[in-house]
């Protein structure tokens, strides 16, 4: 693993603003105080992914992990901040370079049902992009598609079929073949295995690991399933309500999480255990990102919260080499 960062993000933010609807605008004209609602989906996040690394991005729903993944994949434009690809600012790339960068970063989506065009045959789902981008020729497409399908463990005989003729696991493989077809260097997998049955999940996880060693791929693996993340990632980043709360190498983090949220999250992972256990869940719910708590976002649910947590946003600090955490307790 070289030390060079393949993708890096600095101060990345994404805000979604909901404009007042008609009734709201009329009320506004009549003098009522109507404010735009802003969701801080991602709030000043820094992230660096080295070549060959598998980084897990973990958090509960609404924490902004998918939004961050989409910004890094280039599907969403950040409101603030910058993304660098191989050290170059992505916005400042020449059009040919930007083109290459887009091909090098591919995304694999959660829903194997919604992310494939139901009216296209597998052949064109997988083969269209490489032909358009000149990776293969139209006459060479058939054998190129065969090759891609074989790589993901599908029978090339199936290439004349439509997506609905496949099971969930096979559709996942088609999605993966489509991403691989343009020779990417970096894959953003957004809950890519969440919709699959346990026995099929294991097959797809194995496929991801095989492809990694075969093509020297780098992954950003977005998931809420900590068991899977622990298994396949080198480094884990934990998000809560749009902010990174802790990041460390997988071994270190799973051996002893530092941030109280990370501790709670790891404690809740259901594991196959042999005895009945009593659950000690953390209290409360994930607050609405429309109206996040002041100070540290986690303080209303945190068992260790004190005054400072309510007033001051904790900054991410290095607490050990390669390990960062955002908690006031670390200052004590």
């Amino acid at each position: 693993m070289s030390g060079e960062a393949l993708v890096s993000a600095r101060g990345l933010s994404k805000r979604f603003v909901k404009k007042p609807d008609l009734a709201g605008r009329i009320a506004g004209h009549l003098g009522a105080e109507v404010r735009e609602e802003t969701v801080h989906a991602v709030d000043h996040v820094d992230l660096e992914i080295k070549k060959g690394e598998v980084v897990g991005l973990v958090g509960e729903s609404g924490c902004g992990k998918s939004t961050l993944g989409r910004m890094i994949a280039g599907l969403l434009t950040p409101t603030e901040g910058e993304v660098r690809f191989k050290g170059k600012l992505r916005d400042a790339l020449s059009s040919a370079e930007a083109h290459a960068a887009r091909l090098a970063i591919q995304m694999i989506f959660q829903d194997p049902f919604a992310s494939l065009n139901p009216r296209a045959r597998v052949e064109s789902i997988v083969g269209e992009a490489p032909v358009v981008h000149g990776i293969t020729t139209r006459s060479g497409m058939a054998s190129y598609v065969d090759d891609m399908l074989r790589r993901v463990g599908l029978d090339p005989e199936f290439k004349r079929r439509y997506p609905h003729q496949f099971s969930g696991g096979q559709r996942s493989r088609i999605g993966i073949a489509r991403a691989l077809a343009v020779n990417p260097e970096f894959l953003v997998c957004d809950e890519a295995i969440a919709a699959l049955d346990v026995s099929i999940q294991a097959q797809i996880i194995n496929l991801f690991m095989d492809l990694r060693s075969e093509f020297d791929l780098t992954y950003l693996f977005i998931s809420h399933d900590l068991g899977v993340v622990q298994h396949i990632t080198d480094r884990v980043v934990i998000m809560y309500l749009g902010r990174v709360v802790e990041a460390a190498s997988t071994d270190v983090l799973f051996n002893g999480p530092n941030h109280p949220y990370a501790q709670a999250l790891l404690a809740e992972v259901p594991r196959i255990s042999t005895s009945k256990r009593t659950f000690h869940p953390i209290k409360g719910e994930i607050p609405s990102p429309l109206d996040p708590p002041s100070g540290c976002h986690f303080h209303p649910r945190c068992p260790h919260a004190f005054d400072r947590c309510r007033n001051e946003v904790p900054v991410l600090k290095e607490i050990a080499p390669g390990r960062i955490s955002a908690c006031h307790l670390n200052d004590g």
Binding site: A202, G227, Q230, H231, I232, T250, I272
Partner: peptide, 24 residues
Amino acid sequence: RGLINSVPSHNARGSRLAQIPGMT
């Protein structure tokens, strides 16, 4: 046994998971 063995926490980290071949 296949179901239990295919759970990641039952496998060494980074190793290939014991998988049940085929599909339902």
